[in-house]
């Protein structure tokens, strides 16, 4: 289906074909033999069994042949896999960060996105970072996967060989919204990518955007994956919706005490830096980590500006 989407597809699919092919021959062969014996040597056709205690020749044959076959399978698996460990030196470096439950991709010129954009036919090497629990970055069409382990930087590389958009999943169970933690890899033509890369890093454009209140905040909310749990349209997800949040009255649990608060600047700063201090009534405690390291006070102010626009 995705034939040739990355440089690893052919070798991996060859390993699949070898293993599944040999297996099918044996599965069908043994099943057919078994059924034939059951038919040929059932009680009616063969009233008296012939006692056979075994045969060393046969035991040797059916030990040696499968051993050779599994070594062949091992070889194809290893051959398909070995290149995955060695990224070429000129690969384009991108830093991929996972958190419950969103993705962030940072490029060398400082661009941050939640979708992975890569140029076609160019080796791309990812540094895999997790800020909380173990995640796993998986692009089925590319046949690549590697865990993102907190405290450790794993690596992955590939060459996207066909333009298009492909699914990118988290495959290591990471809590409540694990099954919603997906995004896309977009493989672009060289020109398209170059244009996107230049536009995104264009600082004058950013300055202009900053003039409109809330634009930078919106970008921050998207990059940090806030919308994975807080909707912008009023629907209830893991956390309360952002729509109409600013300035509203809310019941929160402070420790075991319920109290009513007004959502103001001070409350939002606390909710981002110490999410468990006041937990909105009806929501589960401990689902959100503190964003003290990720978001500066300036960033939080931009987010507040953005929330004000969501009436």
């Amino acid at each position: 289906m995705y034939s040739g989407a990355s440089n690893f597809v052919t070798t991996t699919d060859t390993a699949f074909a070898v293993i599944i092919g040999i297996s099918m021959v044996f599965l069908i062969g043994i099943t057919a033999t078994m059924l034939w014996f059951v038919y040929r040597y059932n009680r009616k056709r063969n009233p008296v069994a012939t006692q056979i205690h075994g045969s060393n020749t046969l035991e040797v044959i059916w030990t040696v042949i499968p051993t050779i076959l599994v070594l062949v399978m091992f070889f194809y698996g290893w051959k398909g896999y070995a290149p995955m460990r060695n990224a070429p030196d000129d690969a384009m470096k991108i830093r991929a960060t996972a958190r419950m439950w969103s993705w962030l991709f940072e490029y060398e010129n400082g661009i941050k996105t939640d979708t992975l954009y890569v140029p076609v036919n160019k080796a791309v090497s990812l540094d895999l970072i997790s800020v909380d629990v173990i995640h796993s970055l998986y692009i089925p069409a590319f046949r690549v996967k590697e865990d993102m382990v907190p405290g450790k930087t794993n690596k992955m590389w590939f060459v996207g060989q066909k333009e298009g958009a492909y699914e990118l999943f988290c495959t290591e169970y990471c809590g409540l919204s694990h099954s919603y933690m997906f995004t896309e890899v977009v493989v672009m033509s060289e020109d398209e990518f170059a244009a996107w890369y230049a536009e995104k890093s264009d600082t004058t454009g950013r300055a202009a955007a900053a003039a409109v209140p809330g634009t930078l905040g919106k970008e921050l909310v998207r990059q940090n994956g806030c919308v994975a749990c807080h909707s912008l349209d009023g629907s209830k997800l893991i956390g309360p919706t952002f729509k109409g949040l600013y300035g509203s009255q809310h019941k929160v649990m402070t420790g075991n005490q319920e109290r009513e608060i007004t959502v103001d600047d001070e409350y939002i700063v606390r909710a981002i830096y110490e999410p468990d201090a006041d937990v909105a009534a009806g929501y589960i405690k401990g689902q959100m980590i503190s964003y003290r390291k990720e978001l500066t006070e300036q960033d939080v102010n931009e987010i507040i500006e953005f929330l004000k626009t969501l009436k």
């Binding site: 390993a15 293993i19 043994i30 194809y76 698996g77 290893w78 046949r143 495959t171």
Partner: peptide
């Protein structure tokens, strides 16, 4: 038993091999 066990065993070869496991691991 022998039939389903064989399917289990053969699919085990797929997850025991490196390149193919990378694709189907945790799926």
């Amino acid at each position: 038993f022998i039939f389903v066990f064989m399917i289990g065993g053969f699919s085990g070869l797929v997850v025991g091999s490196l390149a193919t496991d990378i694709h189907v691991h945790d799926t």
